[in-house]
Measured scan of single mutants.
Amino acid sequence: RNRTTFTSYQLEELEKVFQKTHYPDVYAREQLAMRTDLTEARVQVWFQNRRAKWRK
Rank of each mutant, 00 (worst) to 15 (best):
N2W: 02
K53F: 09
H22N: 03
Y27G: 12
T36L: 13
E15L: 02
V45Q: 10
R42N: 03
R50S: 04
A33M: 08
V17Y: 10
A41H: 11
P24W: 00
F6N: 04
P24R: 00
A33P: 00
A28E: 13
R42C: 10
L38T: 05
V43H: 05
K16M: 08
Y9K: 15
A33R: 09
D25Y: 02
K16L: 07
T5I: 11
R42P: 02
M34D: 06
D25I: 00
Y9Q: 05
V45H: 13
F47G: 01
R1Y: 08
D25T: 06
N2D: 11
F6L: 11
N49L: 10
Q19D: 15
L11V: 13
V43L: 07
R35L: 06
E12I: 03
Y9F: 12
Q10T: 03
T7I: 03
T7G: 05
F6P: 04
F6S: 04
R42Q: 15
L38W: 03
T4R: 01
K16T: 09
E12K: 09
S8W: 05
E12L: 04
R50N: 04
T36C: 09
A41L: 11
V45Y: 12
T39N: 13
T4I: 15
T5W: 09
V26Y: 10
Q19K: 13
A33G: 10
R50Q: 10
V43I: 14
R51S: 02
T5G: 14
L32M: 02
D37K: 12
Q44S: 13
N49K: 09
T36P: 00
F18S: 03
E15R: 01
Q19P: 00
L14Y: 00
T39F: 03
Y23F: 06
T36S: 07
S8F: 08
Y23T: 09
A28T: 08
W46R: 01
Q10P: 00
K53A: 12
Q10W: 01
P24Y: 03
R50M: 05
P24V: 04
F47P: 02
S8I: 07
V26E: 06
R50E: 10
T5H: 13
F6D: 04
K56G: 14
D25S: 12
R3I: 14
T7P: 04
S8C: 11
K53D: 15
T36G: 02
E13S: 05
V17H: 08
N49M: 09
E15M: 02
Q10L: 02
D25E: 04
M34A: 14
E30A: 06
T21Q: 05
R50I: 01
L11F: 04
T39I: 03
E15T: 03
E30R: 07
T5E: 15
W46F: 03
Q10K: 03
L38N: 02
M34L: 12
E13K: 03
R1Q: 06
K20I: 08
E12F: 01
E30W: 13
T21C: 11
Y27K: 15
Q31V: 08
V43S: 00
V45G: 13
R29K: 07
N2L: 06
L32W: 00
D25A: 04
R1S: 15
L38F: 03
H22L: 05
A52S: 08
A28R: 06
S8G: 12
R42G: 13
D25F: 00
K53S: 12
Y23D: 10
R29Y: 04
A28W: 04
R51C: 04
E15I: 00
W54G: 13
V43M: 06
W46N: 02
Q48V: 10
Q44F: 12
L11P: 01
Q44M: 11
W46T: 00
K56C: 01
L11M: 09
R51Y: 04
A33Y: 04
T5R: 06
W46E: 02
R42F: 10
W46H: 00
A28C: 11
V17P: 00
T36A: 07
S8T: 14
T39V: 05
F47C: 02
Q31N: 14
V26R: 10
V43Y: 03
V45A: 13
T39G: 05
W46Y: 03
Q31Y: 07
K16G: 08
R35S: 13
E40I: 06
R55S: 12
V45T: 13
T21R: 04
Q44Y: 08
V17W: 06
P24D: 02
Y27C: 13
W54H: 15
L14F: 07
D25G: 07
K20M: 12
R51V: 05
E30M: 12
L32C: 05
Y23R: 05
Y23A: 05
R55I: 06
T7C: 05
E40P: 11
Q10D: 03
T5L: 08
F47Q: 00
Y9E: 11
